[in-house]
């Protein structure tokens, strides 16, 4: 069975994992962050997980609700551990919230020729890109440390984008197709469909 390493299980990543739970992969979740009360508004993490590491919380949620077993790694992805954390990956899903970590992931997957899907949200939480690495451009925040999508109003859109990620991953696992899309309130457009 292939191993899918998911980096970042927040607004986008937690929904992507929720909808990816039936994929024929071993899921490994990487996130250093902890669940805060504001996260409960737009992420899959429940109030009972407040204060817990997000990767561990997601692991517990999947096991408790669905009996799905995943591996949780409660660490920040940094240059010193990227070989260890991504080394087992047959496939990488990037749902992080900063350009530096995205570039670290992008450099590693390109160097090791591992397929990587990136999920990215706009600051308003009303536009998303689900793009394979071949076409992915890293966007930086306008200002470092800018507030991320914390508002509960983005929950439906984050769920939609997470479901799209799972669908794109499922298509890739079935036949190797790499479909890149962008989503807005009005629907989605296919950016590329590669094999």
């Amino acid at each position: 069975m292939k191993t899918l390493v998911v980096v970042g299980v927040g607004a986008l990543g937690s929904h992507a994992v929720l909808f990816s739970r039936n994929l024929p992969v071993a899921l490994v979740l990487v996130d250093f962050d902890r669940v805060e009360s504001k996260n409960v508004l737009a992420q899959v993490h429940p109030r009972t997980a407040l204060g817990r590491n997000k990767a561990e919380a997601m692991k517990q949620t999947l096991l408790g609700l669905f009996g799905t077993r995943v591996e949780a790694i409660p660490h920040r992805l940094v240059p010193e551990n990227v070989d260890t954390l991504l080394g087992r990956a047959d496939l990488v899903l990037d749902c992080v919230d900063n350009g530096a970590t995205r570039r670290l992931i992008q450099a590693w997957v390109r160097n090791h020729k591992v397929p990587c899907l990136h999920g990215a949200l706009s600051a308003g939480g009303d536009f998303a890109r689900v793009v394979w690495d071949d076409h992915f451009v890293v966007d930086d925040e306008a200002t470092t440390g800018a507030a991320t999508c914390e508002d509960g109003a983005i929950l439906p859109f984050a769920g939609m984008a997470g479901a799209m990620i799972a669908d794109v991953l499922a298509e890739h696992l079935r036949g190797g197709t790499r479909r890149s899309v962008q989503l807005g309130a009005g629907g989605w457009q296919v950016l590329a469909r590669d094999r």
């Binding site: 986008l12 990215a120 949200l121 706009s122 600051a123 308003g124 890109r129 925040e141 991320t148 457009q189």
Partner: peptide, 14 residues
């Protein structure tokens, strides 16, 4: 050929 003009998407988690 296609060109997409779009907002930046720097976020994934929070």
């Amino acid at each position: 050929n296609r060109i997409f003009v779009r907002p930046k998407t720097p976020f994934g988690a929070a």
